[in-house]
Nucleic acid binder design. Sequence first.
DNA 1: TTGAAAGCGCTACCAC
DNA 2: GTGGTAGCGCTTTCAA
Lengths: 340, 340
Amino acid sequence: MKLKEFAKQLGLSPTTVSRALSGYPEVSEKTRKRVAEEAVRLGYRPNINAVRLVTGRAGAIGVVMGRNEFQFCEFMSGMAERLDSEDIDILVSPVAVQDTKAEIQLYSRLATSGRVDAVIVHSPKPNDERILLLHKLGIPFLVHGRSETNVPHAWLDIDNEGAIRRATSHLLDLGHRRIALINGRDGLTFTLHRDKGYREALEQRGIPFDPRLVAHGQFTDEIGFRFARSLLEQSPRPTAFVAGSMMTALGVYRAVRSLDLVVGRDISVIAHDDVFPYLTADNMAPSLSTSRSSLRAAGARLADLTLQLLAGRPASEIHELWPVELILRESTGPAAEAAQ
Amino acid sequence: MKLKEFAKQLGLSPTTVSRALSGYPEVSEKTRKRVAEEAVRLGYRPNINAVRLVTGRAGAIGVVMGRNEFQFCEFMSGMAERLDSEDIDILVSPVAVQDTKAEIQLYSRLATSGRVDAVIVHSPKPNDERILLLHKLGIPFLVHGRSETNVPHAWLDIDNEGAIRRATSHLLDLGHRRIALINGRDGLTFTLHRDKGYREALEQRGIPFDPRLVAHGQFTDEIGFRFARSLLEQSPRPTAFVAGSMMTALGVYRAVRSLDLVVGRDISVIAHDDVFPYLTADNMAPSLSTSRSSLRAAGARLADLTLQLLAGRPASEIHELWPVELILRESTGPAAEAAQ
DNA sequence: TTGAAAGCGCTACCAC
DNA sequence: GTGGTAGCGCTTTCAA
């Protein structure tokens, strides 16, 4: 059913029907109501591509999906939830991890192709090329995370620095002095923020920073295991770990057990948890103490902010920093040395 | 830059330029090459929405994303990879798990909205409402998995039955007689196929089927733990587990350890592995024997088949059943009773 | 408050 | 092998 035909059946002009459906003020309440009801009854829906052509809007938000990011689904699911009631789709593009050149090209294509009205930038660096590019191209974009580029941009981030500072401080309170940090990929802002939080906590107690206790890499089980295992084989070994993700924590748990040590007694562990339905900190053995923030909620909110940005809210006004909960469970306990 | 303007700069008609860019045969090779080069140089790209309006194609494939599906990202990533070079997007819609009514409505909206050219159906049931609906609405769709509905439809599936039959047989070969199965959500085709493979393996050896050894549910760490733990506390307890996913296997490992038993010695475990970059069977401790099939590859292939379907290949011709590898690692060993 | 009609940018039919 | 041009289905001026 097309507009023309639908309008004819109602005895109205296409103009009026279009206006009624789009909520323009000049249509009488009576007409609007009638049009809305008949549209449902007769199953009329505007052709989305015609609407997009004529309005010049793409009706989609672009997101670029790296390879190894299990977190991504949760984030996107949150976005999709918020956009469900809007006529806005999510357009997904894949990119090989750490192929910066390909990634820049992809963002460039995305921005100039006219397929999206806005783009989401993930895991930014302090001086992120993508942000400069998108700003130059003039396409609206939002950053999930933060960056120090001096072009104005909208962002939403969690307080990574505070989260890791508190996690580390808590371990220090428990008497731990050799605390290892398994952080994210090197050079990313959130990684730097976490490094910073870690060092601040140490500094506050006058504990010297030891770079050998810090590792960077992707959030995989394997990296968690390798680094934890190698550190635990040294002497003196760390008595606590701050892990960057649930997957990393799985690896750390495994490394601890492989040396016949016990998490929560011999070795304390705190991890950052993005809240996954299929793997929960409470269910681990022992249950895992976490700094926790919902990726799904962040996705939903970022979708919301994107709509605001597209509606004209200035990017320079859109900045949200979310606090992170610290939830103590069984994986943290007094330092073994302190107990001896 | 618009077609008209671009054509004028080349001294050609819009028609010829359009044909050259779309690969029509009647354009001379020389002209085609020149147009392609100039398009890159001048940065001309057809307006995607105009193309979609005039061709009547939406330029997108719809996928519905349930909540708890960590596998989904891997699958979609594979799809996105294959579609990268095409002018086809992936449209993501979320739906609450197990809300069948909402799901049917969502598929209905998706199919009638004109936003997608085809729809992917996941985790079908033998008699799946969604398949009947999409067939009735006349929109092209592909099923990831199988169904017994008698409307013709394209599908790609892995050999779940064979995979679990072989996994179970292997455990029987090792002397195990009480083998538990932690399967997927009840009522889904792949769950039924796995149940069937399990029972067939038992039957071949004349081992009676014991329904108490089989559980159904989502692929979460928690369900793996709960069921394994509860069975292991009984007497006689199972000596082996077949787990539906890596997350389930994590729960099983945990349950085994929580009772001071050892995976691979006291209790054998085989799981199905969809191949994730962040959690690998090889890295588990002990390394996990798996039946293995790449979800990413399935996503890429299904995207490919979607393009074929849209190009006119009959749905009734598109059926692919993928074999599943069985990879033995350390988590499987002779039954404890047999060793005694 | 409603309607007529001019495009949005492109493809594809038809003519040459 | 190339070009003119009529729409694709809708929104949005402008006029009534």
